[in-house]
């Protein structure tokens, strides 16, 4: 709770400073917003690591293939980073670049999940053959 309040306060201060810098030129304000985004995500990851540990614990107790959980976590990471990069691009008035980055992330996640789909297909085929 304390950390959240601190982060919100810092973000608001950075927002006001960014508005001040924007009068001179947009580039410095943009760099400031990138710095704030990086810091907030860094704070976020420190809270996210217990969640990831819990997912690993769940995977251990469920006995699923560790490969699948790795794919899931990679997808989350790629989605997170690409979403932030895309939003920063859109913020700088370059919405096309931001959208393209997000489409790229979607495509990479799709490519990553190919083994999952393949194993699902194999499972369906096996069930159909047994039936």
């Amino acid at each position: 709770m304390d950390t959240v309040l601190k982060v919100i306060f810092g973000a608001l201060i950075a927002l006001i400073l960014g508005l001040m810098l924007r009068q001179q030129g947009k580039d410095m304000a943009l760099l400031l917003s990138i710095a704030v985004c990086c810091m907030v995500v860094a704070v976020m990851t420190s809270y996210l690591s217990p969640v990831v540990d819990f997912i690993h614990q769940l995977q251990d107790s469920a006995g699923t293939d560790p490969e699948f959980i790795a794919i899931l976590l990679k997808s989350v990471g790629i989605g997170l980073v690409a979403e932030i990069a895309g939003l920063i691009c859109s913020d700088a008035g370059n919405a096309a670049m931001g959208k393209t980055v997000q489409i790229l992330a979607t495509t990479v996640i799709l490519w990553l999940s190919l083994p999952l789909m393949r194993s699902l297909l194999e499972l369906i085929q096996r069930i159909m053959e047994e039936a």
Binding site: D27, M28, L31, I34, A35, C38, M39, V41, A42, T45, L48, S49, V52, A70, L73, K74, V76, G77, L80, V81
Partner: peptide, 27 residues
């Protein structure tokens, strides 16, 4: 020059962030 100085600082921060995300999500 000011822009380059700030860009250097930001680049360091971004690389730190990427390392953090890499270690967190087991890339």
């Amino acid at each position: 020059a000011g822009l380059v100085v700030v860009l250097m600082m930001i680049a360091q921060k971004i690389s730190e962030l990427f390392e953090l995300v890499k270690t967190l999500f087991h890339f």
